[in-house]
């Protein structure tokens, strides 16, 4: 178990967005977080990555309590997230996008007196990562000029550049064309061999295909848990998530 949350709760004024949520994310497993719109999936993500502070509850990452840790510090500990809206640096080139991620572990981020060419040592590793996701031909394009699907691919490649221990992907397939979905699914399957992945996803084909464990959220609380077969046969899930007329 690499990441776990206990009795997670978050209030916004009088509204409880997330209540009593327990999640355990395991090494080399893909864990899906699903649920209807407004169920609190993204809030849970923000809580786990510390972009939001939980009202109560406890979060541990690799055995360390991170309930009160700053988000950048959590990222340095190996918990890296993506965002629902593709998070890239639009006016940097594709190669520079990857290099920004590589700069930190490479300890080349505070030197304001050195020329940019000092970063060229990161190019080989960056190109390797870009090749692994099929973006090598676009390395000199501005990230803003990529198609939506390619931007998401770039985002995942940037995340992988940090070699994280836990990957949190917020709707990685949203808005992607069929070809890209297949490629990203392959990519996630591949990276999950050596690290834990927690993802929010609406595409149930992807979820059934990719995920080992599923947590269903509804109105901020856990409705059901288990593998795809268990969850998809759960009566409450059928009613809440897939509709009553689902066979």
């Amino acid at each position: 178990m690499v990441l776990s949350a206990r009795d997670l709760r978050r209030d916004f004024g009088g509204f409880t967005a997330v209540n009593n949520v327990n999640i355990d994310v395991h090494h080399a497993k893909v864990h899906a977080l699903i649920g209807p719109n407004g169920a609190g999936k993204t809030t849970v993500f923000n809580l786990l990555t510390k972009f939001l502070q939980p009202t109560s509850g406890k979060i541990t990452l690799l055995g360390q309590d991170i309930t009160k840790t700053a988000p950048a510090r959590v990222a340095r500990m190996g918990l890296v997230r993506s965002f629902q809206i593709s998070a890239i640096f639009p006016h940097l080139t594709v190669l520079e996008n990857i290099r920004v991620a590589l700069q930190r572990p490479g300890n080349l981020s505070t030197q304001f007196w050195l020329p940019l060419s000092k970063l060229d040592v990161l190019n080989d590793r960056a190109m390797e990562l870009l090749t692994s996701v099929g973006l090598q031909n676009q390395c000199n394009s501005l990230a803003a000029d990529l198609s939506y699907g390619r931007k998401r691919v770039l985002e995942i490649a940037t995340t992988l550049a940090l070699d994280p221990k836990v990957l949190l992907l917020d709707e990685p397939m949203a808005g992607m064309g069929g070809e890209d979905v297949g490629m990203v699914a392959e990519l996630i399957r591949d990276v999950a061999k050596t690290r834990a992945v927690l993802m929010v996803e609406h595409n149930l084909n992807v979820v059934s295909d990719l995920c080992d464990h599923i947590t269903v959220l509804q109105r901020g609380e856990i409705l059901a848990e288990g593998d795809y077969a268990t969850v998809s046969n759960d009566e409450q899930v059928k009613i809440a998530y897939m509709g009553t007329d689902h066979d």
Partner: peptide, 29 residues
């Protein structure tokens, strides 16, 4: 010019472009 075209300047530009992403990459922005 030197600061802008330096490894540090690169991080500054990434913060300008997308601050949350820079945080999620582990930078104390």
């Amino acid at each position: 010019w030197r600061i802008v075209h330096s490894p540090f300047g690169m991080i500054l530009r990434s913060i300008r472009e997308n601050e949350n992403r820079a945080i999620s990459l582990g930078y104390s922005v």
